[in-house]
Design a protein around this nucleic acid. Structure first.
Lengths: 167, 167
DNA sequence: AGGGTACGTCAGCCTTGTTGACATTCCAAG
DNA sequence: CTTGGAATGTCAACAAGGCTGACGTACCCT
């Protein structure tokens, strides 16, 4: 399995073995990535779906349900169940739109912000440690590969609001 | 929120905004990462759990159930359900251990190998495209950050069998 | 002979995804 | 002004895939 790609190009990083290692790295890393928030969520009786909703509502306050639906890529029924519990528990406020009264604009309450902060802090803590261990150049590469791995629509959304930081 | 880290160090890549972008990149990239296999799996009536089992059995033929349990980090009941269906469908063969007859050693049948190949090919295709787009140096950084993000045990397993390739 | 290990299995529960159907509200076009 | 379609909510039913707890069997090792 050494050289299945003739031509002598320096593409060793594209061997099947390298790709498989990358695949496994994604698998294990994602597990680590979600481990800390999962613990916090479990204490509150929530799951990852709640985390995702809270994350993006915090990111873009006032976003509509449809917006969120597109980003998360789930059905409205599935999201609705999650949103309902968050609203009932007083973490999210759903305001009827002023311009278009069919739309619901979503906001975090102070309680919701507190949970988001706790979840985000845990996740950023691990990410910070990983970034620090790997160094700035590795971080650039990390981001490049991740972005290239996204589906086009997601990459579009991701890149679109990347303008917030000057990098 | 510009400079919360005094000392003048060039740690711009550790700002909360950068970390948040990294978090979202992980989320979106993982979605892309699983999208292609998910489609294939759905055609066969399987889910990601089956993919993971098949992947690691292919990776280490003859591994025991307990081994697989540790790698996947799920309960034996959960894994058993998946393994049973794979054995029933003739994708996995479970052989009683010769040394220790309590153990079951797991192997892919030819059918199992075919599915693994199809799943792996889809995933490697995307990974290859991402690697190619980002370039070899980015790939190194990608791997470094992912490895730093894993839990220690998973990193240990991951690094342990990294010796297969000479990188 | 007995304790602990490896594995399988039954039962029940939860989260989170799905489809399908239907009601409501309301903007906008005819 | 009516009506089509969009946005939303909601009910029901279902499935995958996690989980815990309990129990049985086979087996190694002391």
């Amino acid at each position: 399995m050494g050289e299945q790609r003739p031509g002598g190009e320096a593409l060793l990083f594209l061997t099947d073995e390298q790709l498989r290692k990358g695949i496994e790295a994604m698998f294990f890393a994602y597990r680590g990535f979600t481990a800390d928030p999962d613990r916090i969520l479990a204490e509150h009786g929530y799951g990852r779906a709640h985390h995702r909703a809270v994350h993006f509502i915090n990111r873009t306050p006032g976003m509509t349900v449809n917006n969120l639906l597109e980003i998360l890529g789930v059905t409205k029924q599935s999201l609705n169940r999650v949103l309902r519990s968050l609203v009932e528990d007083g973490l999210v406020q759903s305001r009827i739109g002023t311009h278009d009264k069919r739309e619901r604009h979503l906001f975090l309450t102070d309680t919701g912000k507190a949970l988001e902060q706790a979840l985000s802090e845990a996740q950023r803590h691990r990410m910070r440690a990983a970034y620090r261990a790997a160094g700035p150049e590795a971080v650039v590469g990390f981001r490049q590969v991740l972005e290239a791995m996204m589906d086009p629509e997601q990459r579009h959304y991701f890149a679109r609001q990347a303008g917030r930081d000057k990098a």
